[in-house]
Each structure stands twice: as structure tokens, then as C-alpha cells.
């Protein structure tokens, strides 16, 4: 019995390791190719390792950062992600607390609308949303968060209310009797308890906003601003011939920070995903 088990686990380990290589390989391939000169990145030469003749050093990276506008795209993505996620966390947690504590027809209706919005695909409103945001001048990185707050409220409110139903009322009541107004109660009593859910929602929303392509592509004033996904799409889309070297450098510059952040806080990220899934 014991012998059979150890044999099985060896087979499994080998199999899982092979799978691991398959999982890492595409990214390693891009990394290797980002160090090659342009002519060496032909479709059939992608698998070759860079050698003395084809090694380009950091030229592609210099090109991507210098003339392809990577840094400004990265900055734009940062601004959009930070403002949107902060807005979603703050506004949606407050909204969720109100609609769980005050139960009447109005709050039930609001909650239903939020849940409904989670199912509706973006294509349903992309054209009208882009037009509305143009009219209201919500098309810069500094105020596109209003759109993200509106469109992303569904999931956030849903997750927050799911958690709030499980925290006891007594502490909040005690705070109110001691003279706290609802705002003080929320920030001093509820918010600290909410921290784990905040992290989960924050991670899910960050993953969404940072990687989102179509919404900023349609809503932002494209002549002035690009985000990282839009920049990468531009490499293929609009310049005719694709400059593979700088494109791969851009992909690496996009992927590396994500991987580093992931390795540092993977526990939170994985827990966040589980929490989001269980309640979603």
C-alpha cells in the first residue's frame, strides 16, 4: 500500500512539473526574444536562443521606453487603476453597509440593480457609455474612475454585502448609543472589521482595471492618452509592419511588475480569489 502511494506521487510530481514548464515557457520565450535583434525574430526563429550574432542587449527595451511611449502608458494605467480602485473600495463599502443596515424597498431595488449589472456584458453598453462619458468630460485618466465606479459597483457591492450580513449588529449599536453618528460608526467600527474583504475586493478590482482594454480604449481621449494594454494592441493594429522587438520588450515590462507583485503577495491574491468566488 505504502509503496504504491509513493510511486503514484512520483508520477504525479513528474507530470505536474512538466505542466509547470508548459505554464512558464511562453513567458520565458518572450523574455529571450526581447533580447534579440529585429531580424532574428522571424516566425520560425522564435524558438532559437539568442546568440552572439542576434543578441541585441537592452536595445529593444531602450526603444520601448524611449520612443514607443511605454512610460507614459504605464503612468496612465497606474493613475486609472489607483483612483478607480480607491473609489470603488470606499464608495461601495459605504453603499453596501447602508443597504444591509437599512432594509426598505429602495435599498432592495438598488441591490437588485447592482446584481443585475454584474451579468450584463460590456458590449451592451459600450457605444452609449463612450458617448455619455464624452459628453460629461469623463474621458481623462483623472476622472475615468467615475465610469469604473459605476460599471464595477455591482461586484464590489455584492461582495461587501455578502460579508456584512455576517458581522454582528451589537457593536455598531453600542457605538451609536455612545453617541457616534453613522459616519463615525462606519469608519471607526465597521471599516476595521472589513479589512480582509477590502483586500479581496481590492485585488479583484485591480486585476480587472489594470488589464482592461476595451473600456479605456473607447472612453479615453485616445489622441492624448494610452494605457499599457492599448499600447500593446497598437503595435499590431495600426503601424502596418509589426516591430516585434520593442513589442516583446513592452510585453516583458508589463508582465514583470505583475509577476513580482504576485510573488510578494500571492497569499492575499489567492485568498482574495477564493473569497470572491465563494461569494460570487
Amino acid at each position: 500500500m505504502k509503496k504504491k502511494n509513493s510511486a503514484l506521487s512520483t508520477v504525479l510530481t513528474v507530470f505536474l512539473s512538466i505542466l509547470c514548464v508548459a505554464w512558464v515557457y511562453p513567458i520565458v520565450m518572450i523574455l529571450l526574444n526581447s533580447f534579440k535583434v529585429e531580424t532574428a525574430i522571424s516566425t520560425s526563429g522564435v524558438f532559437q536562443l539568442p546568440n552572439a550574432a542576434t543578441f541585441a542587449g537592452l536595445a529593444n527595451y531602450v526603444n520601448a521606453v524611449g520612443s514607443k511611449g511605454f512610460l507614459s502608458a504605464f503612468g496612465t494605467s497606474m493613475v486609472i487603476t489607483i483612483t478607480s480602485v480607491v473609489a470603488i473600495l470606499l464608495c461601495c463599502s459605504m453603499c453596501a453597509w447602508y443597504i444591509t443596515r437599512v432594509e426598505n424597498f429602495f435599498t432592495k431595488m438598488v441591490y437588485f440593480l447592482f446584481v443585475f449589472s454584474m451579468v450584463v456584458p460590456f458590449q451592451m453598453l459600450m457605444f452609449t457609455l463612450a458617448a455619455t462619458s464624452d459628453q460629461l468630460k469623463l474621458n481623462t485618466p483623472w476622472n475615468i474612475w467615475v465610469i469604473y465606479l459605476g460599471f464595477g459597483a455591482g461586484l464590489a457591492v455584492f461582495m461587501f454585502t455578502g460579508f456584512m450580513k455576517s458581522i454582528p449588529l451589537e457593536i455598531e449599536e453600542a457605538a451609536m448609543i455612545d453617541g457616534c453618528n453613522p459616519l463615525q460608526t462606519f469608519f471607526m467600527i465597521v471599516l476595521p472589521v472589513l479589512k480582509p474583504t477590502m483586500i479581496s475586493v481590492g485585488i479583484l478590482e485591480t486585476m480587472w482595471v489594470w488589464n482592461d482594454y476595451l473600456l479605456p480604449y473607447l472612453v479615453l481621449d485616445r489622441k492624448k492618452y494610452t494605457t499599457v494594454p492599448i499600447l500593446i494592441q497598437y503595435f499590431k493594429g495600426s503601424f502596418g509592419r509589426v516591430e516585434m522587438g520593442p513589442m516583446m520588450a513592452c510585453i516583458m515590462l508589463t508582465v514583470l511588475p505583475i509577476i513580482i507583485v504576485y510573488l510578494v503577495c500571492q497569499k492575499y491574491i489567492i485568498d482574495g480569489v477564493v473569497a470572491g468566488a465563494v461569494k460570487g
Binding site: 453603499c95 443596515r101 435599498t107 450584463v120 465606479l149 459597483a153 449588529l169 453613522p182 459616519l183
Partner: peptide, 28 residues
């Protein structure tokens, strides 16, 4: 407690709901 909280809706619900109207209900 519910009564005291009730009239605070402009602070708690309104920001999210306004954004929701702009970002979802109107375009929908």
C-alpha cells in the same frame, strides 16, 4: 439605529448610485 442611519443616504449611497447611473443605467 436604522432610523438614525436612514437620513444619511446622501453620503452613503448617493456617490455610488450616481456613478452607477452614469456608468450603467443611462447607457443601458
Amino acid at each position: 439605529m436604522v432610523k438614525a442611519t436612514k437620513k444619511w443616504w446622501p453620503i452613503f449611497v448617493l456617490p455610488t448610485f450616481l456613478a452607477f447611473i452614469i456608468g450603467f443605467i443611462v447607457p443601458f
